[in-house]
Design a protein around this nucleic acid. Sequence first.
DNA 1: TTAATGCTTCGACTACGGTCGAACTATGAA
DNA 2: TTCATAGTTCGACCGTAGTCGAAGCATTAA
Lengths: 226, 226
Amino acid sequence: MKEGPDIARIAALIGDPARANMLTALMSGKALTVSELASEAGVTLQTASAHLSKLDAGGLLRPRKQGRHKYFSIASDDVAQVLEALMGLAAGAGHLRRRTGPKDAALRKARVCYNHLAGDKGTQLFDSILAQGHLVIEGDTLKLTASGHRFASDMGIDLASLEKGKSTLCRECLDWSERRSHLAGSLGRAFLSRFEELGWVTRDQGSRAVIFSAAGETRFDQLFGR
Amino acid sequence: MKEGPDIARIAALIGDPARANMLTALMSGKALTVSELASEAGVTLQTASAHLSKLDAGGLLRPRKQGRHKYFSIASDDVAQVLEALMGLAAGAGHLRRRTGPKDAALRKARVCYNHLAGDKGTQLFDSILAQGHLVIEGDTLKLTASGHRFASDMGIDLASLEKGKSTLCRECLDWSERRSHLAGSLGRAFLSRFEELGWVTRDQGSRAVIFSAAGETRFDQLFGR
DNA sequence: TTAATGCTTCGACTACGGTCGAACTATGAA
DNA sequence: TTCATAGTTCGACCGTAGTCGAAGCATTAA
């Protein structure tokens, strides 16, 4: 009767509306405080605090204390991946997919998924560096080629320090809107933050949308044309 | 506050222990009756019926009536994928990963994931046909090459009828035990059933384990050596 | 020190949902 | 027809978990 890991425990954690809202908000990649998450979920501070300690105990979040603030963020890529997969199901199976609001188009075009670029532009990036031979798929894992090393360095990404870290360098992640892979892992993270540094993109406050500047998009398309 | 699809709804569906047990049981790929699922979950027939209609309404299951029996199976590959992902999280995050029983080793070696081969042998299959050039990764999708077509036909798989079907031919699926990809989609399904027809493998009754015959494993390793 | 802010803990209320017994329907067998 | 098996529906019970008010800590600012 009992076989395999205990799915129900974590599914139940995600299954509460308030907690689900918090997790969705955290998928922006930003760390948020208890109060921010409370308003995000539409509950009072007390209940939010209770929910967050449960999510923490369940291993879904990573808390960090900073002064009198307590910041929460998604615990790991694994968690983010499960959430994206769930979104995919919910978007597809949910008979009437949510109304396409003004922001919706922007979200489909480009958004952050935990901490890397997702949406149309995310898959464009992934497909392009794969096609250019900067990245190869070896069985299950993604591997950066020699040209990929050069390319990333030229873009101003410090690969050496990334490779020291314990998290995977390259990793696939599946979109719920595009249903295609985009680049996750520490390199995916590095790309996005580099784009921000270069002023190519800015993150929309209060949503997961990523907004390209006109010049930024031109440069992006030059480098990662389809 | 409300952004993206409604995660909570389906997560809550999976979050109930009884329902989670049923879904885990269905991950064997076999369609099961209401009574079987009831005993699987350790509840009475009535409650099982109630649970199953909820899962059905949520789009997670596909019901089929046959005489006075009602069979349920996992609705789609998407659902199976989410469940596998959840198992991965639960196995990793669950502080004390479940005791490694006698069946556990067998499960890690080879098991069915919804309807295709997973576990160590599953990733071996995937890696090998990729290395042999039968399969290529094009951006996000997997594509069978010309040599792959020949190879599958030689194995006695009717590709033409598979390609007529509306489900994807090739698809990646992530293991919770191996944390690596294996082959899903209708071709993955076809491979497994072909292995069964050839007598290379048999499915363990009442669990997800797949057992190789001595001769079967020899042939399998010949074709899909690492 | 006092005051203000951010968060946690306690306690009590409430409601939703899982559970089963019992009665009911449907299919198949004798 | 009658009986048996498979599944559904109804109704009632109960427990758990989400919710918030109020009080309690903890950290910073004045």
